[in-house]
Design a binder for these strands. Structure first.
Lengths: 337, 337
DNA sequence: CTGAAAGCGCTAACAA
DNA sequence: TTGTTAGCGCTTTCAG
């Protein structure tokens, strides 16, 4: 039971090896009758070309790597879907590298995706070992782009969403509803995105002539949102609205307020960030900022493939605009009426 | 700027090509001094072997494919993490294939992972095109296993969690707390897992001498859970406990009950299924059934690699036990006291 | 412990 | 339009 190779097709079809190869590569310079003969022979034999041999002969693999920390996030999910689709459309496919937290300590140097020319290019998705990766990828001369970078002024091509504007608009929305006591629950400082969202909030507040009130958290999750609100309330802070730096934080905040007898949105308005899948499913539906996941993924692929095709020209980073989605968790400020 | 190849290492180190290859493959039959020479030369040159050449020469790629529909699910997330880790430990890595809903109509025949011997083996993760995939993979003689199959009696090696037992134990837990009016919100019939969980529930209820009450849903999500409860309440069904076939459904159910003025768990007990990440973060914390994601992933890898190593011997399917996690959303039945 | 020789299956000039 | 001739970079017998 040997593997059928191109030679078997040659024999069966009666044309030369090169012609078969041409059919494989959709060359136009093959007589139609021969093409049919070859195609038929392939079908009869159940022939499929060997990717290894093709990669070796061409010098490229058709594989694009993507590194990430977690999959359990609907924004990343959306991005990866988009990346995957764009890639498939171009004849590439995706190899996954999941950095377990344990690996974070490890140097990027030994990263398997970076070894052995396994991939033609790499997408770094919101990674913490950003600096190391960038260094190593440059050293290895592997084309790459970063989606959602965490380093302020990273020396690489990045695809991002403008988190400053997102934070600004979320706050503006609340301001427009007449709120002035707006609390911001901010994500971990480690994230550039969290820092930018906070700056957007502060800018909007300051512009409006109100004092920003920010409470920081260690993680983007429900429990942190819950605890933050409880802590604020205990300190006597009485906001009429909250801008949470992420939907999970918002959900936790909602839980906490409800726990304290507040009604949403009558007594307290809440804005989240990310538009995670649950945002439109919970009650009340969460007003939030949506990330353009589709576009993020597509742009990343477009730019990366450009870099692979023409290593000469300089690619430019991209910064996309987020979008405010108004749902049921925000309402006009009662005190304002 | 040519790519450094094994020949450059040969030249630099002074030993033969074969010896270099041996060092590459950790052969023990290399004199230590030579090994060092080679290693040093590789380092100096910044040499990394070509995966394509290795694959071609060896006849295997070191790639394992995994197909899935969505990433935004913390159970899948956990499984993939586990798969990824086990795989890396064995020197393999993961290629991802995400079936967009659009692709579901397509035949598996053209699936890129299945072409060109791209992968040494495949893990099918909870796929709907199961039947087609199984057929095609068998035809192509690509080793594969299925995690969470949807076809009752699929002709393939599967790694599963016993959903019947899960459903049974969830219900038993409620029964043990004195509940007898237990509503089951079941997932879509399309899922074997949903059907099994329901059977477990029905069995437990029947054994206890109570009548099962099941309401079906179209999807595993929050909104369906919410609507189901609202519908039941409207119909005059007044359960003291709910076993939801999935955590999202449970979350929606909690929302609905709260909306109707019920307190959890004082007035109504809720059990979910899956132990999604939010289960332990919401308020009250959700009692649920945890899937052994770690084990699922590990077993899948173990079995798959076994199949790849020894295609001769028959691999056996595996069925793991789920675990009840008791948290705050369940309490003794008030009427029962 | 080491090396020479023979591929792995395909693509890419270069001619014809 | 087709075929000939070289490799692509590595692993693997099989002798030494």
């Amino acid at each position: 039971m040997k593997k059928v190779s191109i030679l078997d097709v040659v024999e069966k079809s009666g044309v030369s090896l090169v012609t078969v190869s041409r059919v494989l590569n959709n060359s136009t310079t093959v007589r139609e009758s021969n093409r049919q003969k070859v195609l038929q022979a392939m079908k009869d034999l159940g022939y499929t070309p060997s990717s290894a041999a093709r990669s070796l002969a061409r010098g490229s693999t058709g594989l694009i790597g993507i590194t990430l920390q977690t999959l359990g996030d609907t924004v990343f999910d959306g991005i990866i879907h988009a990346v995957n689709e764009s890639l498939e459309a171009k004849g590439y496919f995706l190899a996954l590298s999941i950095a377990s937290t344990a690996q974070l300590d490890n140097s990027a140097v030994n990263h398997f995706l970076f070894q052995e020319d396994r991939v033609d290019g790499i997408i770094l998705l919101s990674t913490f070992a950003e600096k190391e990766y960038v260094l190593e990828l440059k050293r290895k001369k592997i084309p790459f782009v970063i989606i959602d970078n965490h380093i302020e002024d990273t020396k690489a091509v990045t695809i991002n969403v403008d988190n400053f504007i997102g934070g600004y608009e979320a706050t503006r929305h609340l301001l427009d509803l007449g709120h002035s006591q707006i609390l911001h629950i901010s994500g971990p400082e480690l994230y550039l995105s969290a820092r930018d969202r906070r700056r957007g909030y502060e800018q909007a507040m300051t512009e409006a002539g109100f004092a920003p009130t920010v409470i920081g958290t260690d993680e983007f999750n429900i429990r942190c949102g819950f605890n933050s609100v409880k802590a604020c309330l205990a300190q006597g802070i009485r906001p009429t609205a909250v801008f949470a730096g992420e939907d999970g934080l918002a959900l936790g905040a909602m839980d906490a307020f409800r726990d304290e007898g507040y009604r949403i949105p009558q007594d307290i308005s809440i804005v989240g960030y990310d538009d995670q899948y649950f945002a439109k499913e919970i009650h009340p539906r969460l007003t939030t900022i949506r990330q353009p996941m589709e576009k993020l993924g597509k742009e990343a692929v477009r730019i990366l493939l450009d870099m692979i095709d023409g290593p000469s020209k300089r690619s430019k980073s991209v910064c996309l605009k987020p979008e405010l989605i108004v749902r049921e968790s925000t309402a006009e400020c009662a005190a304002h009426k």
